[in-house]
């Protein structure tokens, strides 16, 4: 089928591209836009490695076609950094707690938990687990990931003192 023009906003930057209808969103991000931080793990919607934020909500980018994103907004791991280019508190907490090993599932984990913390600055452990329940990690056993999200939440609340109380001992 002949390529169609789409316009997608990714990490606040607008891109115009020609895509064949069958190109998945993850292949578009990686192969067309060169945003290779988003990974594919299963291409059938189970592993969560390709998680991105679409119109504010985490989704699996292997289960959408790029053409469906025409006119929409996507956030990827490349957009997580702070305005000054430094790490976000969530990224920093992942580093601090060594919440990754091979790093392959990490962008998906970050996007899933970034969305969580945006809507819920003080998540319980169960809420963290629910948020990453569809993101498979083979390296870590998830323990240090849950710890990272708790740490990030605590630090982010600390930066905005009105946002809640501490729930983790560092």
């Amino acid at each position: 089928m002949k390529p169609r023009e789409i316009s997608v906003t990714v990490n606040a930057k607008r891109y115009r591209s020609e895509v064949p209808p069958r190109l998945t969103l993850v292949d578009y991000l990686r192969e067309v836009l060169g945003l290779i931080g988003t990974h594919t793990g299963c291409e059938h919607g189970v592993c969560g490695a390709c998680s991105v934020i679409f119109d504010g909500q985490p989704i699996r980018s292997c289960l959408m076609f790029a053409i469906q994103a025409d006119g929409h907004e996507v956030e990827t791991v490349e957009g997580l950094a702070e305005a000054d280019g430094g790490l976000s508190p969530l990224q920093d907490a992942f580093w601090e707690t060594h919440a990754l090993q091979c790093g392959y599932c990490t962008p998906g984990m970050l996007m899933a938990t970034h969305a969580l913390l945006r809507s819920n600055p003080d998540p319980t452990v169960d809420e963290i687990k629910e948020a990453i329940g569809g993101n498979l990690c083979r390296c870590t056993g998830y323990q240090q990931i849950v710890e990272a999200v708790r740490l990030a939440a605590k630090r982010m609340r600390g930066a905005h003192p009105e946002a809640g109380k501490d729930t983790i001992d560092e």
Partner: peptide
């Protein structure tokens, strides 16, 4: 802190794909 994690959390790992 590990040396490797910094690149992965920024989406800067370089995998074969």
């Amino acid at each position: 802190r590990t040396k490797e994690d910094r690149r992965f959390i920024a989406g800067e790992g370089r995998f074969v794909a």
